[in-house]
Design a protein around this nucleic acid. Structure first.
Lengths: 247, 247
DNA sequence: ATTTAAATATAGGTTTGACAAATATAGGAT
DNA sequence: ATCCTATATTTGTCAAACCTATATTTAAAT
């Protein structure tokens, strides 16, 4: 461990200290699960006050880099990274970008289709039993007419998450967080009113059947049809909304 | 604006307040560029102390959701989202995940190849003059034998960023941040020692020529060859490193 | 000797109060 | 009209104290 105590200049101190510690984590000078010096020690070593140290630590905590524990064996510890830790950041940024109209739905659906097709192809090659079971379970959920729209949307997300997981590629999964956690929920929020559940389930069934049969062409064709349906449903939902707004 | 002041229970307060404000931003109750109440007002309204408010605000600042300014018209303001704001989070998480061996290089190269091929195809369809110029400029940089390895790697990243930008798809660009900001730099750090610059430049030239000619097959073939070269260079670099470690 | 309860120490969490620094604005001087 | 200075506002940092969660040690009970 080697924090660079002498590099901190006396303005915007909390941010600098956070960056300093962050660098130590990124460079491997601070290891996963390693305990940072106590708040008092950090304050002494950096020559600053403890509340300022705390502000710096809160920055790191918000970036999922550290977590704290109380007690004599407590302290602040470098957090083991997990892709889920990124999920909120990605979802939040995507949500805001959509909110300010930075992306339009066509772009979103295009990006989703192209990247999810990759996952489809890999899922066919892998044909993982776990993934097939997870997808099949969601299809069962979706066929239950009594579930709410919210639950149907959640199951839709879980189906696609299982499909992406079946690619078996960790880096690709990381990239697909944007799709699974942001783009699909955001789109679902608009289309849930007008789409037919049976139609969606039919596409999901086609996808899973194709994956079982390792038929990449059928899988990607089914996905393409599904997303084309999403596209037209989105337009229909916007039309319906415009009609509602005019009455 | 409608912060939920009464929802905060008296433990882990700073985190709760941050989540509360974050929700307001995500739900659109707080708009882009909108000014939050002053720290004193927030403290009063939540019934907590000002340093605790500050800890909460530092969490939000670390998530690129707000930024602060001093003075009579100062305060904390909701930040306009920008994909670059995500860059550090993505790079950091990917770096750590690679560091703990969660991803191996084959997976990384595979994910990169499949997704970057999509960008290639779109770039050919679009054939944007701006993008071509940016890529061509980087090729010129890369042909200069006097630049350092570091500069060559940086130019390599910029070339691929220009290629990805030429896809013209914002959501896809957002997803490709992981590749551009994390996977390529991480891989470059290992292979820079063994790869031939001329070979890389040749592949880059093939890619740009194909994009100019709107030849998607040639573009994706050139990219595939480039990444195959990265793969073998990576193996060679690991071998060379193993040899160095044994002497 | 073993188990349970209480006391103690440690480290993070929060509060109170004060001062410093950056910045915009208003008023006065030229 | 322009420039300079004083003032007000808001964030940034500090000092000192107290609170709370948690692990460990000590003392008491069985």
């Amino acid at each position: 461990m080697n924090l660079r105590y002498d590099e901190v200049v006396r303005s915007g101190i909390a941010k600098q200290v956070a960056e300093n510690i962050r660098s130590a984590i990124m460079d491997g000078r601070l290891k996963i699960d390693e305990r940072l010096p106590t708040e008092d020690d950090l304050a002494r070593s950096f020559g600053i006050s403890r509340p300022t140290v705390r502000e710096a630590l809160k920055r790191l905590a918000a970036q999922n880099l550290i977590h704290s524990r109380r007690g004599p064996q407590g302290g602040n510890f470098v957090k083991r990274p997990d892709p889920e830790g990124l999920s909120k950041a990605i979802t939040g940024a995507a949500t805001l970008l959509v909110g300010i109209g930075a992306f339009d739905i066509d772009e979103i659906v295009t990006a989703r289709l192209e990247t999810e097709k990759i996952c489809c192809r890999m899922a066919c090659e892998n044909r993982q039993e776990d993934g097939l079971q997870a997808m099949a379970a969601e299809i069962v959920v979706q066929q239950d007419a009594s579930i709410s729209d919210e639950e149907f949307c959640a199951s839709d997300v879980r189906f696609h998450r299982a499909l992406v997981d079946s690619s078996g590629n960790g880096p690709l999964k990381l990239m697909m967080y944007t799709v699974i956690e942001a783009f699909i929920p955001i789109t679902n929020m608009i289309v849930f009113r007008v789409r037919e559940r049976r139609q969606v389930v039919a596409f999901h069934t086609q996808i899973i059947d194709a994956v079982r049969a390792r038929d990449t062409d059928a899988a990607t064709a089914a996905l393409t049809s599904l997303l084309s349906y999403v596209r037209t449903s989105y337009s229909a939902a916007l039309d319906a909304r415009a009609k509602r707004d005019n009455t």
